[in-house]
Amino acid sequence: MSEHTIKATGRSDKGKGASRRLRHASGIPAIIYGGSTEPKQIQLDQEKIWVASQNEWFYSSILSLDVDGAVESVLLRDMQRHPFKQQIMHLDFQRVNANETLRASVPLHFLNQDTSPAGKTAEVVVAHELNEVEVSCLPKDLPEFIEIDLADLKLGDVIHLSDLKLPEGVEIPELKLGKEHDVAVVSAKLGRTGQEEPAPGEGGEAAAPEAPKK
């Protein structure tokens, strides 16, 4: 697990007005919550966090949040974006206890699809039914992503949650709820290779004429 450090500063001003002023000054209001410690109001640099937010690890990794020199391990739990500007409006971080199991969504990386039997066949459509999966583990075991090797994927194959190769210490809670929760992650199906047959009277053979009425 890679370590990613995010710089932040504590703040005492609260309320919508204070948050609005902070955003105008290219800052982001945020909060750290969870654990046995009171929630902490913080602020971050808009430009630096915007750059960090373009990376997958920002959403799925344990972050080292350095607030005025005091470092806390956290997970990003919520991000509010401006509806049309490239601006982050607010962030929620949850404290992480190294000895407590956590749940987090982890992205899936699909490998060797183009060189697989399914990927090399024009008529086959490879569908990614899921792009991320929720896992349960200790913070030290949290993977940044889970790889799925599709090298042998062929027409008709389906890869389910239970087929994923998980790192040691990592579980998928959904699988404990029953077989019906073992959903498909990847499937290789035959695509539409031609036009549908025309209905009678719409090209092809002419429709039979109606019998004359008596």
Rank of each mutant, 00 (worst) to 15 (best):
Glu171Ile: 03
Ser73Trp: 10
Ser162Asp: 06
Ser2Pro: 00
Ala52Leu: 11
Asp68Glu: 12
Cys137Glu: 02
Ala188Lys: 13
Glu144Leu: 15
Glu47Tyr: 07
Ser26Arg: 13
Asp13Asn: 10
Leu22Pro: 01
Ile159Pro: 03
Ala206Gln: 14
Glu72Tyr: 06
Ala184Ser: 08
Glu202Pro: 03
Gly191Val: 02
Ser53Glu: 06
Thr193His: 08
Asp149Glu: 06
His109Leu: 12
Gly17Arg: 11
Gly169Tyr: 05
Lys16Asp: 02
Ala70Lys: 14
Ser60His: 11
Ser60Asn: 14
Gly34Asp: 04
Lys154Ala: 13
Thr121Leu: 09
Lys140His: 13
Pro200Val: 07
Gln43Lys: 15
Leu142Lys: 06
Glu147Cys: 06
Val67Glu: 05
Thr9Met: 13
Lys165Ser: 12
Val185Arg: 11
Gly17Lys: 14
Leu175Cys: 06
Arg95Gly: 00
Gly194Trp: 12
Leu63Val: 02
Ser187Asn: 15
Pro167Asp: 04
Thr193Lys: 14
Asp68Tyr: 10
Ser136Cys: 07
Glu144Asp: 15
Gln46Leu: 11
Asp68Phe: 08
Ser19Trp: 06
Leu76Tyr: 09
Asn112Ala: 08
Lys16Asn: 08
Asp152Ser: 12
Ile159Phe: 04
Ala122Trp: 03
Gln46Asp: 11
Phe110Lys: 01
Lys213Val: 09
Asp114His: 12
Glu168Val: 09
Ser105Glu: 15
Gln86Trp: 08
His90Val: 04
Gly203Leu: 03
Gly203Asn: 03
Ala25Phe: 01
Gly15Trp: 09
Ala98Lys: 13
Ser73Phe: 13
Glu129Leu: 12
Ala199Tyr: 13
Asn131His: 14
Ala122Thr: 07
Leu142Ser: 12
Lys48Cys: 01
Val67Lys: 09
Asp78Val: 00
Ile148Trp: 06
Asn97Met: 07
Leu177Asp: 11
Ile42Lys: 01
Ser53Asp: 04
Glu72Leu: 03
Val67Asn: 01
Val125Ala: 14
Leu44Val: 06
Thr115Glu: 13
Ile28Asn: 08
Pro143His: 09
Ser36Phe: 08
Gln94Lys: 06
Gly178Tyr: 11
Thr115Ile: 11
Leu111Gly: 03
Gln87Ala: 15
Pro107Trp: 14
Gly191Phe: 10
Glu100Gly: 05
Leu108Asn: 03
Thr101Arg: 08
Gly169Phe: 04
Gly27Thr: 05
Ser73Ala: 15
Leu142Glu: 02
Glu56Lys: 14
Phe58Glu: 00
Thr101Met: 09
Ser2Gln: 12
Met89Ile: 09
Val74Thr: 01
Lys213Asp: 11
Glu168Met: 07
Lys179Cys: 01
Gln54Arg: 15
Gly203Glu: 05
Leu108His: 10
Asp114Ile: 01
Gly27Ile: 07
Ala127Ile: 15
Pro200Gly: 03
Ser26Ala: 15
Ser187Thr: 14
Lys214Phe: 08
Phe93Asn: 04
Ile31Pro: 00
Lys40Gly: 02
Glu72Phe: 08
